[in-house]
Design a protein around this nucleic acid. Sequence first.
DNA 1: AATCTGTCTATTGTAGATAAAAGACAGATG
DNA 2: CATCTGTCTTTTATCTACAATAGACAGATT
Lengths: 292, 292
Amino acid sequence: MAKQNTVFKDAYNRCLKLLADTSSLPSEPELGQMLGVSRTTVRAILSRFEELQLIAWDKRKKSVLRQPRPDDYFPTEETDSLAEIIERSFMRRILAGGAEPGMQINELELAREIGTGTTSVREFLIRFSRFGLIEKRPNSHWILKGFTREFALELTEVREMFELRSAARFVSLPDDHSAWAELTQIEALHREILADIDSRYREFSELDEKFHLLVHKASSNRFIVDFYDIIAIVFHYHYQWNKTNARERNARALEEHLAYIEALRSHDPGKAEQACRRHLQSARETLLQSIP
Amino acid sequence: MAKQNTVFKDAYNRCLKLLADTSSLPSEPELGQMLGVSRTTVRAILSRFEELQLIAWDKRKKSVLRQPRPDDYFPTEETDSLAEIIERSFMRRILAGGAEPGMQINELELAREIGTGTTSVREFLIRFSRFGLIEKRPNSHWILKGFTREFALELTEVREMFELRSAARFVSLPDDHSAWAELTQIEALHREILADIDSRYREFSELDEKFHLLVHKASSNRFIVDFYDIIAIVFHYHYQWNKTNARERNARALEEHLAYIEALRSHDPGKAEQACRRHLQSARETLLQSIP
DNA sequence: AATCTGTCTATTGTAGATAAAAGACAGATG
DNA sequence: CATCTGTCTTTTATCTACAATAGACAGATT
């Protein structure tokens, strides 16, 4: 096995959904555009559709023959890229407990455990090292620095610097900047979720990421925007395995976000700073509380 | 060739220097400690010494038979690790001109050009990507974002935030903290170089890195300290291929450093901030001037 | 009793190979 | 004549293999 064909399988599944809505498919380049893959992959998908008698394919004509059935789809486990699998598996190990700071990380062992080659694990660890949770001893093992209190404090310190600066930039964005429209959308979503908080509070995590990323992007600084990756990944996995009081916590955060959004809208740097500080403070407390 | 034996060659060369000063070598573990390598490598070095009749080796006795000759050393080109070679080669391409922003980076081509396997190039690019100069299109090529004016501005913006905060921490470090002693050493070195600036101005680059790293370390924040890597690498290579007015520029920076150091010593946050700002401002200008 | 050496095993760094995916180009098509 | 398809080439993602290096353990030495 040289390369996993997850790109094919994932695009195939998405294409199957498109197929459900029309009687004929567009041109190959157009499909490639829609699915975010090359024509080579599009053609592989179309070939498979033809084999399974989903479409009749003759050059430019791709007419739908039948609706897709549930078993036409590839199982979702097979559509995750190797990098995603490794990431999830690794994050589970270090965030869901059982991993003490100072522990050694063994590439070979990890690879065996995940059922993959060492190269992919190695590349993952290199990419992951920028998050400050692991460190390499050259010619030797990696060391787990651990998701500790210090880590959380260092992370939030930088986050606060960056987000305060980004918020300050945000308020002075020109009125026709696309960020304002996005902010409106995000605000609406906040209100929707808040109105039905009991059943929809789980959607907060994703919305939180979207909102803060939007704020960070106002900085127009690649280092600030890139740093948000670290925050996002930590919060993402952290919340996934730490669900105490999720409902109340999320409700409170949503309210804070709304106040923060209003402050941004006011174009008043002072108000924005205040609202930003208030929210970051409680985000910090939440994070710290959940560390043993 | 599976692995380059550069660790061996480099440690061998360094051990040869040790050998020049004594009549017998210490124990294997001790040598390993001194050279920063494992006993396996130490034993490989000793075996080679024995072969070349540099020492007589019988268990714990390693008596020097003759002084090393220049041709006993491995050529320095052979002691650089592959990662260093790739880094240098790559940085030359992108900083020493000829590389337009937006250009595609081809792993295979780079590997062929450097004369190495694709794996190493790939891992280098992944590690390097955190510097914000390149970006990956998944399943496709890398894109060179280039050492542009925007890059420099974004870099210095973050640098200034981080260094101001670090300097503020520095002044409140307790008197018995080791940083003060290091600061004294660094200050002395500044005066030495300044006293003989015409012939020693080239030493500034290394000293500059040491000094700012010391300041950043006072933050006790891994993200701030790690970020300094980016600054260091940019300045390092940048100055290496950009030597206009190096003497005057370095002299001026040394003076600014001395003022900055004095301000840190005063334990006065206000003074420190002012001196820090002044130096960062001129560092920024210098960097910007040298971008086309 | 502590440290060292001899020997052996495990892991990392790197090359090379290969399937998947991207992409280039010429001729076909509307 | 602009866009599409068929075909072919190139590049990336990933696996496997292997030398260099690290590291473990038992017996030897001071």
